[in-house]
Every structure is written in C-alpha cells, then in structure tokens.
C-alpha cells in the first residue's frame, strides 16, 4: 500500500460518555510525508483524542483515517508496527534506568539499540552520561529526551508526539524543538501537538483546534498573512490602565495584552496623534505606538473571538 500522504484524516468524530460530549467534531486534515505538522490548541480541544484515534488506541465514531496508507481501524496491527508514539502523560518506567527503559522499548518493537542508534544518537548522547540513573530521578527535560528516544528506537515512519513540551521550561522546550528539526532531516513524518502558540511557527504546517473543531489549517506564514487588519502594539507605563482606556476608545475593535505591549486593531481609520492625546488624558505616560506583524497567537485569538 502506498499513499501520497503520511496521514490522511476524513471527518473524524469522537464523543464520550452518556452525555455524548463531543471531543472531536468532523476533523479532516492530511500530513505530507516528511512534514512536521502541528496540532495547536488549548487543553481539552481534542488533540489527545485525535492522537489516540490515529495511533489505533481509540475507535472513531465516524469518519476514516489512514496512517502510512493503513486504515486506523482495519489495519491497526500494521500501524502499531510502524509508528512511534509518545503520549502526553507518558512517564516511562521510573524504577528502570535510562538504558533499561530504552532497551525494553527496543525489544518490544523487535529491534535493538545498536540497530537504530544513528536515529537517536543526537538526543541520546545528551543523556547517556546518566544511563545508569533511574528514570524517576531524571529532570523533566531529560525524561522528555529519553521518551523521545524510546519512541524513535524502532525507526518509525510516522512519529506522534502528544504535548511533548507541556510543563517543560522554556529552555528545555527550545532544545526539544531543535531536536525535532533534526529528526525531520531524517525523513520522519512528525505530528506534534502543543498548547504553546509560540511553537506553531516551528512547524511546517499547523492546524488550529478548539472544542474539537479545526479552525484553520495552513502554514504559519500564510496564516499570519491572512490576518485581516493591521495590528498595532501599544505600550504605556501602566498595562492594565492602558487596556481599560483602549477598550473605551470608540475606534478600537479589539485589544488585549501581548507581552509588554497591548495588541490593538482598529475600525476604519486610525490616527496616531489622536490616540496618544486620548491616552495622555487618561493619565498614561511613556506611550509608544507602532504597527506590528501579527503572530499565530493573534490569529488564534481572532478565530476564537469570531
């Protein structure tokens, strides 16, 4: 079986419990071979349910999906042989050492560490000095690296990483994404989910997801280009006062805090000086106004508010 896409999802739906709470609602997307595809959305958006259906752990209620050309329901055994999966709450065996964990997962997949060492080498050398340490005694960042090694050891064609960076500090997050970039160079297709919007730009293409529905699929660059209004970043000495003042200003369409600035979009024309004067009368000082390019987070906020 061959297919143009590494992952192909058509109208996937999943509900839970008696109340039929909809976790995944008519989701369709595809991932090209060798692509780094991100599912971006907050907790409870349905990311994990999608991952579990694609890794054959859950049966979809409606819709179909193929991974590597195999149907997720009929050919589940094939999929289990070829994919790598790192679940969100994955915490490895805390009472086994790094090496034992890795060796165990290698044998489960019918391979050895030596056979595919080149794949994990990059990541493994960072934790190898501690290979006799038990996984329970590792830091969050190290655990995450070990988990990635375990998911990679059998040379999967498609790698599923469910929220690999949640709860991890910014430095470790950055390192993790650098590792993913290098993996991509090895022609492994990667589907990754994250609640961190700033990680979106590191993916080839992304799907923004909320309440089980996909809001938008595209490359991060195109999404940013599609942002309809000119966005301004405004700063003053008092952030909260600034936002309250801006929200009262009639021409302001939307306004929210964004780091040290407030991101603001306007209805119709916007006059720099008029706004500055207004803000000054509101008691604000050190006012700075500048146009800024939107980010994925701005785009996501826009989608959520519509």
């Amino acid at each position: 079986m061959s297919s143009a896409f590494a992952i192909e999802v058509n109208g996937l739906r999943k509900t839970y419990g008696k109340e039929q709470l909809v976790a995944v609602d008519d989701v369709s997307f595809h991932v090209n071979k060798g692509e780094l595809f991100g599912l971006i959305g907050p907790d409870g958006a349905g990311k994990t349910s999608i991952f579990r259906m694609l890794t054959t752990l859950l049966l979809p209620e409606k819709g179909t999906a193929k991974v590597d050309g195999y149907d997720i329901v009929a050919d589940y055994k094939q999929i289990r042989k070829t994919v790598g999966y790192m679940p969100g709450k994955f915490s490895l065996y805390s009472d086994l050492t790094i090496e034992e964990n890795l060796r165990f997962f290698a044998t489960v997949f019918g391979t050895t560490i030596a056979q595919n060492y080149h794949l994990i080498e990059d990541v493994y050398v960072q934790i190898e000095p501690f290979k006799n340490r038990r996984a329970g005694k590792l830091s969050g960042g190290m655990k995450q690296k070990l988990a990635l090694c375990c998911a990679l050891i059998h040379k999967p064609t498609v790698l599923f990483l469910d929220e690999p960076t949640t709860g991890v500090d910014p430095v470790s997050r950055k390192e993790f994404w650098e590792m993913l970039k290098r993996l991509k160079a090895q022609h492994i297709t990667i589907l990754v989910s994250t609640p961190y919007m700033d990680e979106a730009t590191l993916c080839d293409r992304i799907a923004l997801i909320q309440n089980g529905k996909i809001l938008s699929i595209n490359t991060p660059q195109i999404m940013i280009q599609q942002y309809p209004e000119q966005l301004y970043a405004i700063k003053a000495d008092q952030m909260y006062e600034l936002i309250k003042a801006l929200r009262k200003y009639p021409e302001v369409m939307d306004c929210y805090a964004f780091g040290e600035y407030a991101h603001v979009s306007f209805n119709g024309s916007f006059e720099d000086n008029k706004l500055k004067t207004y803000l000054k009368t509101e008691g604000l000082t050190q006012i700075e106004i500048k146009p800024v390019p939107p980010t994925i987070e701005d785009y996501f906020i826009k989608l959520l508010k519509n």
Binding site: P195, M239, F300
Partner: peptide, 22 residues
C-alpha cells in the same frame, strides 16, 4: 502556573482577573 494549557483568550481574561485583584 495558573494558566497552563489554557487557550490564549481565556489566558488574557485570567490576567484581567489578576489585574483586578491587584
């Protein structure tokens, strides 16, 4: 870590609450 995993709009609403408390 009060806002871990929360969507960007809710995250900002949360910060509004923080500002109010302050």
């Amino acid at each position: 870590e009060p806002t871990g995993g929360v969507d960007p709009v809710t995250r900002r609403q949360f910060w509004d609450l923080i500002y109010e408390a302050s």
